[in-house]
Structure formats: structure tokens, C-alpha cells
């Protein structure tokens, strides 16, 4: 510990955080302007996205160079691990808010609207009988059908679960320093990830055009699309991160005992996997 303390790498000034702040602010100001009906909104927003991307290239690039130059000792490595772990926990809590909304609607508010709460039913929504799925007493968005669990969602479950296995194979290969299988299994994982995203996109198209299941379809449509949408976004981010890890592996980065970035991305990938299982059970199946 004492030795590690002496060698703990404290970087000197960095301009990337400030670039990130400018980028994030431009992004959200643009989005807000767009939502308020301004013509400049979208272009401002994309400028913000571009700045954020530049920041990520610059910042992560710096960290990768420092890492490859062996500037990080074990204690720094541990900091990164704790940091990633608690970041994933914060993501879990973000999804918890939307799962909470789903459970609250299904277990409490929809039954109340349907007559369990006598006054709400009698005074506001006479004649509404509670059911799930529902688009509410006003039938928001018109009649819709739901996506069945045992079609694409079940296939997607298999895809994500297998991708969890392939990324583990890649990890084993890395630990044995078998670079060929490492890249191969990573490629398989990335491919499965994008296959998942493709099938989700296809399913969204199907739901919108054939089933009339839209974001406007009452509380069912809201919870369905927000949960699966944010999950899809996280899968996309995870797949991109995996692709970067694959490129880095091809370049010869990572060693059998030092490969925090690989593990962080693998944890993240398992996290989106677990969230998907929750989605499959509570959104599609039950």
C-alpha cells in the first residue's frame, strides 16, 4: 500500500472535462430549443453531440495512452474498478425508476382507475374496467396489440444470453493470452449485439405499423417503449464499446493480468443482459 501510494498517478490539468461540459450543454440547449420549436435546435444539438464525441475520443485516448505506457499501478486499477462498479449501480437505479413506474401502474393505479378506488372510478372514469395491457380510460393512441413474448423477444433473449457467454470466452482467451480466439469471440459478441439491435428495430417497426403500439398508447406504450428504448440505447452503447475493445485487442492492447477496460465493458454488457431479463419477464411475458 505504501509503495502504491507513492506511485498513485495523479494526472495534471486536463481540458477534456471542460470540453465535455461545453458539449453536453450545447447538446441539451439544442434539444431544448428543438422541443420549443426552434429551427436551430437540431443543428445545435448535433454540434453538441460532435463536441461530446471529440471529448470522448480525446479523453479516452489519453487514458488508453497512459495505460499502455504503464503509468497506472494496481491501486489506480482498483479505483477504476470501483468507479465502474458504482457507475453501473447508478444505471441500475435509473432503470429502477422506470420499472417502478411499470409496477406502480400495473399493481396500483390501473386497478384504482378500474374501480378498486371507489371515488376515482365513480367520479372520473365511470365504465372503465381495469386490464393490462391498457391505454387508459380515454383509450389514448387507439386500439393496439402487444408484442408477444415468444417471438422476437425470446430470440433476442437467447441472443443476449449467448453474447454473455461469448464475451466470457473472449475473457478466458485473453487470460491465456490467446489473441486469435480473443478477437474472434469479441467479434461474435459484437455481432450478436448488433443482431439484437437490428431485431429490436425491426420489432419496433412492426409494432408501430402493424400493431398500432406506439409511445402514445397510454401507460402501456409509455412503459414499453421507455424501458425497451433505454435498454436498446444501452445495448447500442455497449456494442460500440465492445467494438472498440475488439479494435484495441487487434492492436495488441491488454495483457493477461491487466485489462481493466475489457472487464469494465464486459460488466456493462452483463448489466444490459440482466436488465433485458427483467424486461423479458415483466414487460413481454407476464
Amino acid at each position: 500500500m505504501t509503495e502504491a501510494h507513492g506511485g498513485y498517478y495523479v494526472p495534471h490539468g486536463s481540458h477534456w472535462p471542460l470540453v465535455g461540459s461545453v458539449g453536453l450543454t450545447t447538446l441539451v440547449v439544442g434539444f431544448a430549443m428543438h422541443l420549443n420549436g426552434s429551427d436551430m435546435g437540431l443543428s445545435t444539438m448535433f454540434a453538441g453531440v460532435a463536441i461530446v464525441l471529440i471529448m470522448m475520443f480525446g479523453w479516452f485516448g489519453t487514458v488508453i495512452r497512459e495505460s499502455e505506457a504503464h503509468m497506472y499501478n494496481d491501486q489506480v486499477d482498483k479505483s477504476f474498478r470501483w468507479g465502474m462498479g458504482w457507475f453501473i449501480f447508478s444505471e441500475v437505479m435509473f432503470f429502477a425508476a422506470f420499472f417502478g413506474a411499470l409496477f406502480y401502474a400495473r399493481i396500483l393505479s390501473v386497478p384504482w382507475l378500474g374501480g378498486e378506488d371507489a371515488s376515482t372510478h365513480a367520479l372520473l372514469w365511470q365504465g372503465y374496467s381495469a386490464a393490462w395491457p391498457t391505454n387508459g380510460p380515454a383509450g389514448m393512441g387507439g386500439t393496439f396489440e402487444t408484442v408477444g413474448a415468444w417471438g422476437i423477444p425470446a430470440i433476442n433473449t437467447l441472443i443476449l444470453l449467448s453474447s454473455g457467454v461469448t464475451v466470457t470466452f473472449a475473457h478466458w482467451a485473453l487470460k491465456k493470452n490467446n489473441r486469435g480466439p480473443l478477437v474472434g469471440w469479441l467479434f461474435a459478441t459484437v455481432a450478436l449485439g448488433f443482431l439484437f439491435i437490428g431485431l429490436q428495430a425491426y420489432e419496433y417497426g412492426h409494432a408501430y405499423s402493424d400493431l398500432n403500439l406506439t409511445l402514445e398508447s397510454g401507460v402501456y406504450g409509455s412503459t414499453f417503449y421507455m424501458l425497451t428504448g433505454f435498454h436498446g440505447m444501452h445495448v447500442t452503447i455497449g456494442a460500440i464499446m465492445l467494438a472498440i475493445i475488439m479494435l484495441r485487442s487487434i492492436r495488441g492492447h491488454f495483457s493477461p493480468d491487466r485489462h481493466f477496460a475489457f472487464e469494465a465493458v464486459a460488466w456493462y454488457w452483463h448489466f444490459v443482459d440482466v436488465v433485458w431479463l427483467g424486461l423479458f419477464i415483466f414487460v413481454y411475458w407476464l
Binding site: G100, G136, P137, A138, L215, S222
Partner: peptide, 19 residues
């Protein structure tokens, strides 16, 4: 157009307060 907090769509404004 979501209905998290709109009773007409099956949501509940009180749900926001809980969250």
C-alpha cells in the same frame, strides 16, 4: 405523448410524487 402521469392514459400524477 407518453401517459406516465396522465390518468386518461392509465397513468397517475400521484405516481410522479412517489418516484
Amino acid at each position: 405523448g407518453t401517459s406516465f402521469f396522465t390518468a386518461a392514459g392509465g397513468g397517475d400524477p400521484v405516481m410522479f410524487q412517489h418516484i
